Amino acid sequence: MSHSKRALTIVSPHLDDAVFSCGALLERTPGATVVTVFAGTPTDTSLTDWDRQCGFQDAGQAMRARRAEDAEALAMLGAEPMWLDLLDAQYGGDYLPQDVEGQLAPCLGRQRGGIVAAPMGLFHSDHHVVHEACLRLHARHPGLDWLCYEDALYRRLPGLLQERLASLLRSGWRLTPLIAPPASGLKARAVRAYASQLRAFGEGGHEDTELPERLWRLARHDIG
Rank of each mutant, 00 (worst) to 15 (best):
D151I: 08
D17T: 11
A32Q: 07
P119V: 09
D222I: 02
G121Y: 01
S46W: 08
E150L: 07
V191Y: 02
D151N: 06
G204K: 05
G185C: 08
A59K: 12
V130Y: 01
D99H: 11
V11W: 01
L147P: 00
A32S: 15
Q197I: 10
A188S: 13
M63T: 07
G93H: 07
L175T: 01
A193D: 01
G202C: 11
I179E: 02
D70V: 14
S2A: 13
L161A: 11
R174C: 11
T209S: 10
G205W: 01
V37A: 08
E210Y: 10
L104N: 03
Q98S: 15
D88F: 04
M1Q: 04
P181E: 01
M1N: 04
L47K: 07
E207T: 14
D58Y: 08
R28P: 05
E163Q: 15
G204C: 09
Q162R: 12
R199F: 06
D49M: 13
L198F: 05
R52M: 07
L175H: 00
C54Y: 02
T36C: 14
T29D: 02
Q162H: 06
G202F: 03
Y154Q: 06
G92Y: 03
P182V: 09
A166C: 11
Y194I: 09
D88G: 13
Y91N: 11
Y95H: 09
G172V: 05
D222M: 03
G40A: 08
V19R: 06
H14K: 13
R192V: 11
G143V: 06
G172C: 11
A193H: 01
Q103R: 15
S196A: 15
S167G: 15
I223Q: 10
S12D: 03
P177W: 00
H141K: 06
V34W: 01
T45E: 10
A139S: 15
R174S: 10
D126K: 15
D222E: 05
R170C: 13
H141T: 03
H3T: 01
P182S: 12
Q103W: 12
R189H: 07
F201S: 13
H206C: 15
L157K: 14
S2V: 06
R136S: 14
W83G: 04
W83M: 09
C54G: 10
V116N: 02
P181Y: 01
G172H: 04
G205V: 09
R170H: 14
H14D: 07
W146T: 00
L153V: 14
V37F: 02
R164A: 11
G143S: 06
M76K: 13
A89Q: 07
Q111Y: 01
D58F: 12
G185W: 03
A62L: 12
L104E: 01
E132N: 12
E132M: 12
A18Q: 02
S21F: 05
A139Q: 09
F123T: 12
E69H: 13
A59Q: 08
L215Q: 00
R112I: 02
V37P: 08
L122Y: 00
E27T: 04
P81R: 04
W173P: 05
A105F: 08
A73L: 07
L26D: 00
T209F: 02
L198I: 11
R110H: 14
D49E: 11
L165Q: 09
V34H: 02
P158T: 07
I179W: 00
A18E: 00
L74W: 02
P182I: 06
Q61R: 15
L198K: 10
C134W: 00
L108Y: 04
W83K: 08
